[in-house]
Amino acid sequence: MTDLKERVTPVPITVEAAPVRRRGRSLAKHAGLGLLTLVMLYPVLWMVVSSLRPNNVIFRSPGLILDGLETRNYGEGWNALASPFGHYLVNSAIVVLGCIIGNLVSCSMAAYAFARLDFTGRKLWFAVMLGTIMLPIHVLIVPQYIAFSNLGWINTFLPLIVPKLLATDAFFVFLMVQFIRGLPKELDEAARIDGAGHPRIFAQVILPLMLPALATTTIFTFIWTWNDFFSQLIYLTDPDMYTVPVALRSFVDATVSTSWGSMFAMSVVSLLPIFLAFLIGQRYLVKGIATTGIK
């Protein structure tokens, strides 16, 4: 690897033979991708269109063509439940923020230990960690609820956030382990020779290099927490504490007429924050090693 490094000199990007052919290929690529995008986005577009239709024609009018713009759904949906919908958005935001901080701090610490430190029982604990994500939540929720209920945590955000502060999300620990193991080891060994201890290597060498993994963790924690329904439903009993997914579901009742328009409108509204989070986050995803100056 060291010899590779020495050979790196600015290389002009090789230009392919005929620029015309290249542009044609690029056009074909865009056309293909565009078509794929359209097919993939059809359900999402349908939802947006339906949120702009009067409630009683949603299932009677096919396709994506709108006869008119019905913006009433947004106003009605916003005020349909016990509190204005913004209240649920704020609740979700609080939970999401707590979970992101928790996952970033605790998972990266655990991951550093698993990936870079040599300690007794490393393999065993790693297996235990993976094992913790193999049981489905449905059999854990009742004992968990009993435990949190004894702590008086029901109807607070604590049962949702505290576990994340304690690195119970093994998915992200494993993800970060894989990223750290992909980093060249010479870097921390060089730092160690300079006299840096583990905290410093972790904070000053590893963390900056695993920015893509941290961005991934942030985006996923955001999206998954924002969408997580089951545990939020179980732990948040008072409508004042409801989060977006719990609120969204309370629009629907299969046995009576449902305000689908309002439901779709609020689905669109609740999609915006995670879409924005993704738009912003993906810029950090691509700031990998390639652009952080390590060459």
Binding site: M109, Y112, F114, I141, L166, A167
Partner: peptide, 20 residues
């Protein structure tokens, strides 16, 4: 150092995961 870094994880394992 390892157990220090793993402290939150161990706490979670014992306090949150193990019981259920």
């Amino acid at each position: 150092a390892a157990y220090l870094f793993l402290l939150p994880w161990f706490a979670g394992l014992v306090l949150i995961t193990a019981g259920p």
